[in-house]
Simulated assay, not measured.
Amino acid sequence: MLRFVRLVAVLFALALIGCARPSVPPVPPLTFVQSDVDAKDMVKRLSPRGQSLSSWQELAPALERSLAFTAVKPRAGVALEGDGLTLTWGQLHDSIAKLLEILPRLDAEPELLTENFAWFRLTQGVLMTGYYVPYVEASSVRTAEYRYPIYGLPDDLRKLDLGEFHPRWKGQRLIYRVEHGEAVPYPERAEIDFEGALSGRGLEIAWARDLVDVFFLQIQGSGLLHFPDGSRHLVGYAGKNGHRYVSLGRVLVRRGLMDLEHVSMKSIREYLAAHPEEVPALLSTNPSYVFFRLGEDGPVGAMGKMLTPKVSMATDPKFLPLGSLLAFEADLPPEAPGEDDSHVAGLGLAQDTGGAITGARVDWFCGSGPEVEFFAGHIKNPASIHLLVSKEVLK
């Protein structure tokens, strides 16, 4: 009992220190404004073709996954508490059910979206980025060729929801481990990748050929491992070490190694390949570390459900909770080198989260494999985002 009291006291001390850090300012709440004029105008431009769909009815499987997720949430529980809008899980659930109800008629009657839904525009400038499921050359055993570990979730990683102790810490979690009866931060990337902090514990679920591949796998959150025998194995997000995410692209720009307008996944990879001696130091600038689990079907998002290419979106759940129905519009880069820029106006579903996805930002899931890497890696565009809520639940 005394040991537990001591642990809790240490955790509170760490929490207070973390809350006091001026370098991590709180993210302001998103502001929602209902806009019928915007809705009627945007509905005219909505098209399933921009999402590689032949009909809006193809949204049904993805909507059913969101419906199943919200169905197990407490109906009266608050899912969204923003400036100008508060919603319960029950209201989100019923909004999804309403869209499923009208979906068979939506191709011929797009105006049903304005007749049945209130459109709440995010007034902040929203940044839209893209992500995909990468392929990683890997092996189930360590060899001279495959020597970089892909770690599963360590059994000594602990989480504490600080909001259970005080309202001002709502939404904050402390991730730690216990060493000699005291709570200590979990190792950072440099300690794990370059100092062997987790080696010898049997946590490896696979071994990769390239450390940079592992780094980008962690940024994406899931991937397909290609084994030498030709088999493929899905890996999905299992947890993280609790340290803040630092963008390597921003580090390269800040150090004068790359121009901001040229930063992309491809350009970062090219820089690291051309400067292998800098790889350890550069990767270590991002202390955040992601752990994985092996799966069978996927890719799977934070809902625990399969993601749908060009439909599923990763959002900050504190502002756009999982299950949110989104109408989005943006000018996007070409899908492949040499092609023209594109414009998309479509319907997205908040079905995933990400350590780097905070505040007014949405991350669009673009699919799997190298054929979508160029497109996903170059999306960094302003977007117009509306949250759709059934008018019936607002009565």
Rank of each mutant, 00 (worst) to 15 (best):
R177M: 13
D193P: 01
H180G: 01
V184F: 08
E109M: 01
G18C: 09
A281F: 15
G196K: 10
G236F: 13
T285S: 14
F365D: 02
A79D: 05
P317E: 06
P287A: 05
G196Q: 14
P333W: 04
L388T: 02
I17G: 10
V300T: 07
A60L: 15
Q57Y: 11
R45K: 07
L92D: 10
V300K: 09
A62Q: 01
S55F: 12
A97P: 00
D38L: 15
G239H: 13
V27H: 05
A108Q: 10
K240Y: 12
D297R: 14
D352H: 04
K380S: 13
L11Q: 15
D340I: 10
F227D: 03
F291R: 15
D259Y: 08
R269K: 14
E179D: 11
K240I: 08
E339D: 13
G77T: 02
V8K: 12
A108D: 08
L162P: 09
A345H: 05
V27W: 00
I175Q: 12
L325Q: 02
L294M: 04
D36K: 02
Y245I: 13
I175P: 09
E164G: 11
L234M: 13
Y245K: 14
R49S: 03
F328L: 13
P299N: 07
A76E: 15
S139F: 08
Q218S: 07
R45W: 02
K170R: 15
Y135V: 03
A68Y: 08
D155V: 12
D331Y: 03
L63C: 11
R45V: 00
V263I: 12
V136C: 01
L160T: 10
P317L: 09
Q91C: 10
T86K: 11
L217T: 04
T114E: 09
H275W: 02
Y271C: 00
V43N: 09
K305C: 14
E58K: 05
E191S: 07
D213C: 03
K240E: 13
Y176E: 10
P280H: 09
T88K: 00
P276I: 07
F291A: 14
I102Q: 01
F69G: 03
A345N: 01
H378S: 03
A79V: 08
L113M: 08
P48T: 05
H386C: 14
K240R: 15
V372M: 09
L325F: 06
E270P: 01
L260W: 12
V362H: 01
T315A: 04
L387R: 07
S139K: 07
